[in-house]
Simulated scan of single mutants.
Amino acid sequence: MAMSLVASSWVGLSNIYQGMILRLGQLEEKRVGLRKEMDQHELAILTAAQSNNSNQTSRKLADESIGVSRRSRPIPSLGRTTHKK
């Protein structure tokens, strides 16, 4: 009786684990796709800004770091303060 309980729980847990791994793989594929789209969009904006160099507004855009991927930018402190004594 105990062996059947252990075996059935083992099978159930292994099915749950396989489902989690499958979902993790699908989410990672989505994340990679979104990163590629974001990089392409930022490159398109940078290219458009550089092609219109004579325009003052586009010069300001070209000087900004819009071509830098978002994951390369520093993470904000999110309101955390450091107390120095």
Rank of each mutant, 00 (worst) to 15 (best):
K84P: 01
S58W: 15
E28Y: 02
Q18F: 06
L34W: 03
P76M: 00
S65K: 09
S72L: 07
L27F: 14
G33N: 04
R73V: 06
A48M: 06
L61V: 12
E64V: 04
M1W: 02
D63E: 13
S69W: 03
I16A: 15
Q50R: 14
K85W: 10
A44P: 11
K36Q: 11
I45N: 10
K84L: 00
V6G: 02
L24Y: 05
A48W: 07
S54Y: 12
G67L: 04
Q56D: 10
G33W: 01
D63Y: 11
M20C: 00
T47S: 13
R23V: 12
T47C: 09
Q26F: 06
L46K: 08
R35N: 03
V11L: 12
N52G: 03
N52E: 13
R59C: 05
T81F: 01
S9T: 08
E37W: 08
V32K: 09
N52K: 08
I21R: 13
A62N: 14
K60Y: 14
N55E: 11
L24S: 05
K84T: 01
M20A: 03
E28W: 03
N52R: 12
R35I: 04
V32T: 09
G79F: 05
A62E: 15
Q50S: 11
I75E: 11
M20L: 05
K30P: 05
L5N: 13
L27K: 15
L24T: 03
S8M: 12
I16L: 12
A49C: 12
L24V: 01
L61C: 08
S8K: 13
A44Y: 14
I21M: 15
Q40I: 07
A48P: 06
E42D: 00
L46P: 01
R73Y: 10
Y17I: 10
R35Y: 02
N55F: 07
A48D: 11
Q40Y: 10
